[in-house]
Design a protein around this nucleic acid. Structure first.
Lengths: 234, 234
DNA sequence: TGTACATCAGTGAACGCGCGTTCACTGATGTAC
DNA sequence: TGTACATCAGTGAACGCGCGTTCACTGATGTAC
């Protein structure tokens, strides 16, 4: 029992701690919507949570650390949404998976525009992302490229890009990341897909469709179908 | 002579005024690079220009008005770069024009990353773009879509989208903008191109190619060729 | 050409505000015997 | 089970800073006769 109690010991205090940490982040997220990341204010959060501004420092060592937490949360949120959408399709339904990944990314972005801006908009000036943001950041592109890897796998496995292959050299790191299972032009195809998804979502969310595209959701769906049509055989 | 003098009268004072206005904007642009638009500070500009902070108000009525001027300048700068690049090709060389437009947009963005972020990154929170930003903002997409309009013009001219055509409805405003000279799927094709260009540039400039794409310029060139290949007949 | 007046650029002080971060502190909650 | 001690959460005052904007003002530059 002492054992269990000790195991649960962090439970009592730590649970309260976790709850407050979450509340701080929620308040920060709310603030993001109205003021943007650059204006994220610890004092404003403290005010909303009815505590001394210095109390925040029990939970986050600095403003930047809080920002990092928000960024990681955002990456994990899109990442999870995209992975879930992908998992809902037959593994061999590459077309369906590709479209699902794109749709899930857009849906999340539309529901969380400020967090989308935080991770895919202009970087916060003066903020240097620490290494622990990398893994979460990589989830969406990984999900996307995995669909292509598995789709192309039918073709003979490819080695590292040949010397003198400029496109291969330009995409060498990506080729390593996928363990050289895609040709340079297949890698480029994945990057283009990622670019098109992100570009369309950014145009929509950052207001560039005003007075031009009435129904961005429809145009996006259509574009994803087109994307699938042209990158994957029927 | 009095006539000319009166005509030139604004010249003396107004030229000094124009010069200082430009200096203020230049300082603001410099500040943008290090601190971002949200932190744009009139006092910092005044400090750099060795004048009282209140003097700025002789040139811009408020911080927001200065920001608007920067945004308009940025849109006009990319707009001009893109139009120039387009003009350097034979009118009938649609493929060359399309690629040139994309390349010019990217080149400008790479040389002016902060101004790119200002207009194509996350919107500045609390800032409402006034109507005079619209015309400059529309130059790049107009150049792009014009290439498609002229390319497709060989086909029979199309009317407004048919009732019940969902894609046509989603793109109705764009169709009007081009005086109904493109079919809905051709319009969508233009939007996709614009999305892909913007997406690839954003991925590159906002740091998402780190540890993945070594040579973004090459991948971009390749992608533009592919884009031209798939949207336009040889 | 010369004078009287209006316009404009720029000053410097002030208002009222918000910020991140530190520090010594009080109590409450957990830990070890 | 009870006591002594260590850990931790939260406080409130303070430091030093920067900001946008207003206002009454001084001089210089242009305008009209």
């Amino acid at each position: 029992m002492t054992d269990v109690a000790t195991a649960k010991a962090p439970g009592v205090r730590a649970r309260v701690r976790a709850a407050l940490t979450a509340e701080i982040k929620a308040s920060a997220r709310r603030q993001l919507v109205t003021d943007g990341p650059a204006a994220l204010s610890l004092r404003a959060i403290a005010r909303e949570l009815d505590m001394a501004s210095s109390a925040i420092y029990r939970y986050f060592a600095s403003r930047d650390e809080l920002l990092t937490a928000l960024i990681i949360d955002a990456y994990n949120a899109v990442g999870a949404a995209v992975e879930e959408a992908d998992a809902e399709h037959e593994r061999s339904n590459y077309r369906g998976r590709l479209i699902a990944v794109g749709q899930a990314a857009r849906s999340w972005a539309v529901s969380n525009p400020q967090e989308y801006g935080l991770i895919y908009g202009s970087p916060v000036p003066g903020y240097k992302a620490p290494p622990d943001t990398i893994d979460p950041a990589v989830r969406v592109p990984t999900a996307l490229i995995t669909v292509f890897v598995e789709y192309f796998e039918g073709d003979e496995p490819v080695g590292p890009p040949a010397a003198g292959d400029e496109l291969g050299a330009a995409l060498l790191q990506l080729s390593e990341f996928t363990e050289h299972r895609l040709t340079p032009s297949q890698l480029a195809c994945s990057v283009q897909a990622w670019g098109e998804i992100l570009g369309l979502v950014s145009l929509e969310l950052f207001g560039h469709f005003h007075n031009a595209v009435t129904d961005p959701a429809h145009v996006f769906s259509y574009s994803m179908e087109q994307l699938a049509d042209r990158t994957m055989r029927p």
